[in-house]
């Protein structure tokens, strides 16, 4: 077997694949964070909690309603998106004119509420979600074995990122969104209902987080803490990439996943803090982030 720096090729590829999977979750979440920040000027601390909600939505749909994996990929984001509508209309909307820090604190409170509630209802332990049958096998690529579900996770999340990018950069609706980011009052004067657009944007982006949660359910276990651990890493990703561009968020997310995977192979003890170390380096060398301009 070929080796690279004393590490078997297959092991290296396996870790890179895991890194790519983590990276696609980082990408999905930081994409949503970036769009919410661009449109609403809000850093959504509750993003991780919505990711967790997506996982639980899929789990509850499966266990009590008998809804299978494939429909729950649509049901879970919709359910999470609906909760997003409530949060935006009831709470977040009233803080747009305040200092950004208040919306950060508000969404932090929401995250605590959701996490606390689910810990109370379901306990802290992780709950397994069965692999969908169609994806339970794997593909032998000759040099390594590729579990089908992992391949699907990467394809699905990258597909969703691509569609989102297309919708925002290449469609008329996306043009409205971008225009409203630059100058909301002018866009409103043209007869576009900006407040509704903001609500829908928030709902869509937390729906993305919910989708990521449902996608993660068979891979990791579903637990109330699954989002809060992830969101802090995603924050570091956002600091590294800057929130200026959608492509930037996706590329940064994926590459940090890969870097994490590589660290796991070569310096296993540092893998948990790899992303944060990269963040420190970026802060020192390029304080405004790789793709970012500070706002």
């Amino acid at each position: 077997m070929t080796e690279i720096f004393g590490v078997p090729f297959a092991v290296l590829l396996g870790q890179l694949l895991l890194g790519l999977i983590n990276g696609s979750f980082y990408a999905l979440l930081s994409l949503g964070l970036a769009i919410i920040f661009g449109m609403l000027n809000v850093i959504n601390f509750a993003h991780g909690a919505f990711y967790m909600l997506g996982g639980f939505a899929a789990l509850v749909a499966f266990n009590t309603l008998g809804i299978g994996y494939w429909p729950s990929l649509i049901v879970a984001p919709l359910a999470v998106g609906l909760i997003g509508v409530v949060v935006e209309k009831l709470l977040l909307r009233h803080l747009y004119k305040m200092d950004h820090l208040y919306s950060l604190l508000l969404t932090f409170g929401v995250a605590l509420m959701l996490e606390g509630l689910f810990r109370h209802l379901f306990g802290s332990a992780g709950k397994p979600y069965p692999l969908p049958e169609a994806l339970s096998g794997g593909i032998n690529l000759g040099f390594m074995f590729l579990p089908a579900y992992r391949a699907w996770v990467i394809v699905a999340s990258l597909g969703v990122c691509l569609v989102t990018w297309y919708a925002i950069e290449r469609t008329r609706l996306g043009a409205y969104l971008r225009a409203a980011t630059e100058n909301p009052s002018l866009v409103q004067a043209f007869g576009i209902n900006v407040p509704v657009m903001l609500t829908l944007t928030y709902a869509f982006c937390v729906g993305l987080a919910g989708f990521a949660g449902a996608l993660a359910a068979p891979l990791y276990q579903v637990s109330p803490g699954m989002g809060s651990n992830l969101i802090i890493i995603v924050f570091a990703v956002v600091v590294i990439g800057g929130m200026g561009s959608i492509i930037g968020a996706v590329v940064t997310g994926l590459s940090l996943g890969l870097i994490e995977g590589l660290t796991k192979v070569f310096v296993p003890s540092a893998s948990a803090i790899a992303v944060f170390l990269v963040m420190v380096a970026v802060l020192l060398l390029r304080p405004s982030g790789l793709f970012g301009r500070e706002r």
């Binding site: 709470l91 208040y102 508000l106 409170g109 929401v110 995250a111 605590l112 509420m113 606390g116 109370h120």
Partner: peptide
């Protein structure tokens, strides 16, 4: 009672 939930609620009420 779920303490984290209550802390979160106090947070939200305070900010709002």
């Amino acid at each position: 009672l779920p303490i984290t939930f209550i802390i979160g609620t106090v947070f939200v009420i305070c900010v709002m």
